[in-house]
Write a protein that binds this DNA or RNA. Structure first.
Lengths: 204, 204
DNA sequence: CGGTAAGCTGACGACATGACAGGAACAGTT
DNA sequence: AACTGTTCCTGTCATGTCGTCAGCTTACCG
C-alpha cells in the first residue's frame, strides 16, 4: 500500500516531527509546522497520518522496536559476585543511554500512558517487559536463596526498579538542585539496583 | 488587585481547568472548553491568564503549597528498628496518596519539567526538596554507622528513591501488565525504601 | 511517447486564539 | 430610590490552524 516516493515523504515527515518534539513542547507541535519543515503541505501530512498523535504513535512503535537493545542488558546475566556488580552497572548504563537517545518520544509516551491512552500504555509495557520480567526472575531466584524478603512480589519490585530508572533518566537535570552531581547518579542507581535484587552491596 | 466577584470567576476557571486536565489529554485542553464549562467566555479567561499554560502554572503553584504535607512524612523520624519500618511505610503511603489526589496536574508538571521549562522544574524541585533532603540526611546518618556504602552520594540515592516513588505513583496501572497486583506495590516500595536508606530489611 | 495510477497541493469552512471597546453588575453615597 | 464610579463580563474582529476535497502534477510502465 505504498510507493517509493510516498515512503520517502512519509519518512521525512516522521523525521521532522521527531525534531519538533525535541525542540518544542509537545502541546505546541502543530501539523503545519511539521509539514513546513518537511517542505510540504499540511494536506500531505493528513494523507499519511490521522493527526499528530497518530504520527507520534508510529514514532513510538519504531522506538520500541529498537528497544530490543534493552533486552540484552538483562538476559543471561549472573547476579552473584563481581558479575552481579557488572550486571547492575551495565543495566543502569544502557538504560540511561537509551533514554538519552530517545528522550523526546519517551516523554510523550510516558505522558500519554499516564493519561490512560491504551495504545501508549501497551507500547510502554512492551518496551519494558523484557527488562522487568528478567529482573523479576532474578529477584525470585534470590528469594529462593533467602537473600530477599519472601513476602514481597518480584514483579512489583522489578517494576519499581525499572520505573525508577525511567524516571531518573527523564529528570536527571532536576538532581543538581539538591546537590547531586551528574556523575553521582550512576553509582547511586547501580547500588540501588544491586542491593534490591540481591539483598547485598555490590562486590568491588 | 482583585474584587470579590472577580476572585470567584477566576477560581471557577481554575477549578474547571483542573477538571478538564483530569478528563482529557493535556494536548487537547482548549481555552474555549474551559470557559464554556465555567459558564463564561474565552475573553474572560484571557483577562485572568495569559494562556492555558499560565493557568496550569498557577494550579501547580497551589498544589505545591499544599504539598507541605509531604514534609510531615519524613521530618523527625527515626529509621531504626520498628520505627524505621513504619517510617518507610508511611512515606510510601503518603506519597501515593498525594499523587493520587493530584495526578492530573502532576502529570503536566512532570512533562513540562522534562521538557526543560524552568518554571515547572523549579516547582517540582520545591515540592520534592523537603522529602529528598530529609531522606538524604537519613542516608548520610546510616553511612556514618557504616550500614550504607560510603562511596555513594546521599543526595543521588535520595533523589533516585523519590523519583521512583513519583514514577510508580504515576504509572501504577502499568504494573498489572507484568503480573503485579495493586496490593503488591506498597510492600515492594516500602522494602526498597527501607533497604536503601538503612541497608537492612525492615523489622516486622 | 502516451496512459494510468500514485502523490501532492490550493482552497475552503469550521473553529481556536488573543485583543479591544463598550455594556452590565455591583457597592457606596446622597 | 437615584446617582456614580469601579469592577467585571462579553460581542466582535483579525489572524492562524485544522481537516477535507477536487483537481493538478509527477513518476512509472508498456
Amino acid at each position: 500500500m505504498a510507493g517509493r516516493r510516498g515512503q520517502a515523504t512519509r519518512q521525512k515527515l516522521l523525521d521532522c516531527l521527531s525534531d519538533m518534539l525535541s525542540s518544542s513542547p509537545y502541546r505546541d507541535v502543530r501539523v503545519i509546522d511539521v509539514a513546513r519543515k518537511a517542505g510540504t503541505s499540511p494536506a500531505t501530512f493528513y494523507q499519511y497520518f490521522p493527526d499528530v498523535e497518530g504520527a507520534v504513535l508510529e514514532l513510538a512503535e519504531r522506538m520500541v522496536k529498537d528497544g530490543g537493545r534493552l533486552t540484552d542488558l538483562v538476559s543471561g546475566r549472573s547476579w552473584t559476585g563481581k558479575a552481579g556488580a557488572r550486571a547492575a552497572e551495565e543495566l543502569v548504563d544502557g538504560f540511561l543511554a537509551f533514554w538519552r537517545e530517545n528522550d523526546a518520544i519517551l516523554r510523550v509516551v510516558d505522558l500519554a500512558a499516564a493519561e490512560g491512552d491504551k495504545r501508549f500504555t501497551k507500547l510502554r509495557t512492551k518496551l519494558l517487559t523484557p527488562v522487568t520480567g528478567t529482573l523479576a526472575d532474578a529477584v525470585r531466584e534470590q528469594q529462593a536463596k533467602g537473600r530477599v524478603d519472601q513476602g514481597v512480589s518480584p514483579a512489583a519490585v522489578a517494576g519499581s526498579l525499572v520505573t525508577m530508572l525511567t524516571g531518573v533518566a527523564g529528570h536527571q537535570k532536576g538532581f543538581s538542585a539538591w546537590g547531586a552531581k551528574q556523575a553521582d547518579i550512576k553509582p547511586a542507581l547501580t547500588l540501588l539496583v544491586h542491593l534490591t535484587v540481591t539483598g547485598r552491596k555490590p562486590a568491588r
